[in-house]
Simulated scan of single mutants.
Amino acid sequence: MKRLIDIAGSLAGLVLLSPVMLVAGIAIRRRMGAPVLFVQERPGLGGSPFRMYKFRSMLDACDADGQPLSDAERLTDLGRLLRSTSIDELPGLWNVLKGEMSLVGPRPLLMEYLPRYNAEQARRNDVRPGLTGWAQVNGRNALSWDDKFALDIWYVDHRSLLLDMKIIWLTVLRIIQRDGISAEGQATMAKFQGTGKNS
C-alpha cells in the first residue's frame, strides 16, 4: 500500500507541480547557469547507492587553491528561496516514482556517512529514504545529529500509513512556516563526523 501511495503521489506531484518546476528550472538556468539539476549518489534502502535529483541551489565556486567555497559562500539568494520553500526537492519525485525513494522516510544523507554510523544509526537504512520524514517535521536542519538520528530510528520502528499522512500534512505546514531550514550558525547543516563507535 505504501508503494502504491508513493506511485500515485509522485505522479500527481510531477503533473500538478510541473509549472513550478519549469519556472524554477528557467530561473536557475538564468541566474546560475548550467546545470539546472544537482545529481548526487546517495544511500537508499539497505545503503545501496542511487542517483538523487534536486534543483541546484549553489554556485560551483572555488577559492584560489581550487577548493570549493563554504556552503554559505556558494548558496545564492535564489538557492535560499528554493530551499526555504522545498522547491529544490521536487525533482526527487522522480526518484520516488522509480522506487528509489518514498514520499516519507529518513532523508538520504551522504554516502561518506555510511561507515561513520554505529549499529543503531545504520537502522535508518532499513527503509527507503524519503522526500520528507519525521525528523524534517520536528526540526529539520536545526536539530543536532543525535536528535535527527533518534527521530529517524523512531520512524523506522513506528512507521505506518497513518503516520505517513501526518508527516505529509506537517511538512506542508513547516514549508509555509519555513522552520528549521538551517542549523544555527550554518547555511545548511554541518557534516556528520561520526560517533567514534562502530557498534
Rank of each mutant, 00 (worst) to 15 (best):
E89V: 08
L103K: 05
R83N: 02
G139D: 02
Q67K: 15
F50Y: 14
V39L: 09
A64N: 11
R123W: 14
G133R: 03
G47W: 10
T85E: 02
I28E: 08
C62P: 04
I5T: 13
S84I: 00
G25I: 07
L45F: 14
S70W: 11
G99W: 09
L4F: 12
P35I: 02
V39Q: 12
R128T: 07
L93Q: 08
P43I: 04
D6A: 07
A122K: 12
I7F: 02
V127N: 10
L82M: 03
T132K: 00
L75G: 11
W94M: 15
A8Y: 12
N125V: 15
L97C: 03
I5A: 14
R107S: 12
I26R: 00
A24F: 04
R3A: 13
Y113E: 08
S84R: 12
W134A: 03
M101D: 09
V96W: 03
A122Y: 11
L109Y: 05
R128H: 12
N138T: 01
G105T: 09
D6L: 09
G13H: 01
K98Y: 09
N95L: 07
L69D: 02
R128C: 11
L103Q: 02
A24N: 06
M32Q: 09
D126Y: 09
L45H: 13
R42S: 05
C62T: 15
W94F: 15
K98M: 11
A24Y: 01
T76G: 12
A12D: 04
V137K: 01
I28G: 00
Y117H: 10
L17N: 04
S10I: 06
G13D: 08
R30E: 03
L131W: 09
M58H: 07
L93R: 00
N118I: 04
S18L: 06
E120F: 13
Q67S: 13
R83C: 09
M32R: 01
V23D: 01
S84M: 06
E120V: 15
K54H: 02
G105F: 00
G44E: 08
L22M: 05
R107L: 14
D63W: 07
P91I: 05
R80M: 15
E112Q: 15
G25R: 00
R56H: 01
L22A: 04
L4N: 10
P106V: 06
T76H: 11
G130F: 04
P35R: 09
L59K: 12
E73N: 10
A34C: 14
S86L: 10
R123M: 06
S86G: 05
A122H: 05
N95S: 11
R3C: 10
V36T: 10
L93Y: 01
R116L: 15
M32D: 07
G130L: 00
S18Q: 05
V23M: 11
A61L: 13
P43Y: 02
E112K: 14
W94T: 10
A27G: 05
D126I: 08
E112M: 13
L78G: 01
D60T: 07
V104C: 00
A72F: 08
S84H: 03
S102I: 06
L110Q: 15
L69M: 01
P35A: 02
R42Y: 03
S86K: 14
